[in-house]
């Protein structure tokens, strides 16, 4: 993508990424791409922090538009308007979101006739941007968080603590999606980070098939003891042919009512997106070339 724009735009290098300067120079505006930014924060915070740093008077922003990149990564875009040193300014910000970092794309122009083009350019850059993380990797996925439960993040895993935790020491753990093809390293990772059932002694188990709007699989239910106290463990494993999606409810015997929470959560899982080809064969060539008068 970037080589396609170089003939008409000037590429500038920075410690944390690159800048793109249009024909006519910086007075026409430009685009700044910052790679591998940390810490990764909620999308609301990323935009809020970025917007507050722009120092625009009379700031207004379009609603965040969720995007998917051609690699199947999540991204979001918004356009901010305001005045800077008396000039009406428009900035379009896009964030392309990795697992623990993000790329920020920031397009600006003071030329009102270019506002629409800049919006389109930043959006297309975000759509086409490559994080290069690879498709077949452990990833977070979308689901409806259990209402009233407190989400405790452990890297890509989220441990949802029951509303009365720790008095009610029920947990609902959502593990990252895993590619269906596993290696020995993956097996070790599961043992270290996901199925550390130390102290839980299953007494019996039962398996039920499960079908959700997007996935199929099963829930395996265990009854057993931990530290001499009865525990119930329900392990849901769903698949979409590419990834497996595993979640686990671990509850005391009287926490059996939480099974409905697990059922609702797995029903809400949205499979990871499938990478899509670019919307057009060479969108950036046209968009960038038309910038020049």
């Amino acid at each position: 993508m970037l080589p396609a724009v170089l003939p008409s735009w000037r590429l500038e290098r920075f410690v944390d990424g690159v800048g793109l300067v249009p024909p006519g120079g910086r007075t026409q505006g430009g685009i700044r791409i910052r790679d591998r930014q940390r810490p990764l924060k909620s999308i609301t915070y990323l935009f809020r922090d970025a917007a507050s740093a722009l120092a625009l008077d009379g700031l207004d922003a379009t609603p965040l538009e969720p995007l998917l990149t051609v690699e199947g990564e999540y991204a979001a875009c918004s356009t901010l308007t305001g005045t800077l040193e008396g000039h009406r300014t428009e900035r379009t910000l896009a964030f392309v979101l990795g697992d623990d970092h993000y790329t920020r794309i920031d397009g600006v122009t003071l030329v009102p006739e270019r506002f629409g083009q800049m919006r389109a350019l930043v959006r297309e850059l975000a759509h086409l941007y490559s994080l290069g993380l690879g498709l077949l990797r452990r990833r977070r996925y979308l689901y409806e968080p259990p209402r009233g439960w407190s989400g405790y993040p452990r890297a890509l895993t989220t441990e949802w603590l029951a509303p009365g935790y720790p008095a009610d020491d029920s947990t609902l753990t959502v593990f990252p999606a895993r590619p269906m093809i596993e290696t020995g390293a993956d097996t070790l990772d599961v043992m270290l980070h996901e199925l550390g059932w130390t102290g839980f002694a299953p007494v019996d188990a039962a398996t039920q098939p499960v079908t959700t709007p997007h996935l199929t699989g099963h829930v395996r239910s265990y009854r057993g003891l931990r530290d001499g106290r009865p525990r119930h463990v329900h392990l849901a494993i769903l698949e979409d042919g590419r990834f497996s999606y595993m979640s686990r409810l671990d509850a005391p015997a009287d926490g059996i009512t939480h099974v409905a929470v697990l059922r609702d959560l797995i029903a809400s899982i949205i499979p990871l997106p499938i990478p899509q080809p670019p919307e057009r064969s060479a969108p950036t060539n046209d968009a960038f070339a038309n910038w020049s008068d």
């Binding site: 609301t44 915070y45 990323l46 999540y74 407190s150 405790y152």
Partner: peptide, 16 residues
């Protein structure tokens, strides 16, 4: 856990 923009789950990255 989610204060100060901490990402608890993917929904925090996708849904404002």
């Amino acid at each position: 856990w989610g204060a100060d923009g901490t990402v608890v789950c993917l929904r925090d990255l996708v849904v404002p």
